[in-house]
Simulated assay, not measured.
Amino acid sequence: MIWQTRDSKIVYENRWISVREDQVTGPGGDGIYGVVTLRHPAVFVVALDASDRVCLVTLDRYTTGRSIEVPAGGTDGEDPIIAAQREFVEETGLHADEWTLLGEMTALNGVTVAPEFVFLARGIRAHASRTHGQTEEGIQDVSWVPFPEVVEMIADGRIRDGETIAALTYAAIHLGRLR
């Protein structure tokens, strides 16, 4: 084994994450490694409407400022598909009739334990009981952008969120857009 953990202690935790400090021996010798662990997996929703447009939310992230992303959030302990459906309604005020699990990924796997699930949502319609815009998440806008323009937005840097880029890549592979 390349890595050995000699000691480990939790140095911070809240209801979303824990941070531990590990004393390790690795390829470069002895050292300290910080690891952030999500308490619950995250979900990402690539929603496509009948006109092949992708649903994007614009929000203000505490850490990075303005960000354009696909709807996403934490599972809060429930099944990932249930969480994806809930997050989609909460962030957009919309519902999807068709859900497909596109794959699983991990975020920042050099410093985190952060499992994530990516879903494709289709058959989009308004949800009767909710309007979009979770105030606590700072969602400023929900927009529908043609898939080719979303790719341009990644290329020119308007979409910078790595998890959104990865989720859109999963969707592009599933839809045969990368062949």
Rank of each mutant, 00 (worst) to 15 (best):
M1N: 14
M1G: 15
I2S: 15
W3P: 11
W3R: 15
T5R: 11
S8I: 00
V11T: 09
E13Q: 10
N14G: 04
R15G: 07
W16C: 06
W16M: 12
W16P: 10
W16T: 13
R20W: 04
D22L: 14
V24I: 13
G26H: 10
G26P: 03
G28R: 14
G28C: 06
D30G: 11
D30W: 11
V35I: 01
L38F: 09
L38N: 10
R39D: 03
A42Q: 11
V43M: 00
V43P: 03
V43I: 05
V43S: 00
L48P: 01
S51R: 14
D52E: 10
C55F: 01
V57P: 03
T58Y: 05
T58L: 09
L59N: 00
T63D: 11
T64Y: 02
T64H: 07
G65Q: 08
G65F: 00
G65E: 07
R66F: 03
I68N: 12
E69T: 13
V70S: 02
V70N: 04
P71Y: 02
P71A: 05
A72G: 07
G74R: 06
G74S: 12
T75C: 14
D76L: 15
D76M: 13
G77V: 06
G77C: 00
P80L: 04
P80C: 07
A83S: 03
A84R: 04
A84M: 03
A84W: 07
Q85T: 13
Q85F: 04
R86W: 14
E87W: 05
V89F: 09
E91M: 10
E91I: 13
E91K: 15
G93P: 02
G93M: 02
L94G: 03
H95I: 05
E98T: 14
E98H: 15
E98M: 12
W99V: 05
L101T: 13
L101Y: 00
L101P: 06
L101G: 08
L102Y: 01
G103K: 08
E104W: 00
M105T: 15
L108Y: 05
V111N: 06
V111T: 15
T112Q: 04
V113K: 09
V113T: 11
A114T: 10
E116P: 11
E116Y: 02
F117A: 03
V118E: 02
L120R: 03
L120F: 05
L120N: 04
G123K: 06
R125D: 09
A126L: 08
A126S: 12
Q134K: 14
T135Q: 10
T135G: 13
E137Y: 11
G138H: 03
G138N: 02
Q140I: 12
Q140G: 13
D141H: 13
W144S: 02
W144N: 04
V145W: 08
P146F: 01
F147L: 14
F147A: 10
P148E: 00
E149I: 03
V150W: 01
M153Y: 13
M153G: 05
I154C: 12
G157N: 05
R158P: 04
R158M: 00
I159T: 08
I159Y: 07
R160S: 15
E163W: 11
E163N: 15
T164Q: 03
A167W: 02
T169E: 11
Y170R: 11
Y170C: 12
Y170G: 12
A172E: 06
H174Y: 09
L178S: 07
R179P: 10
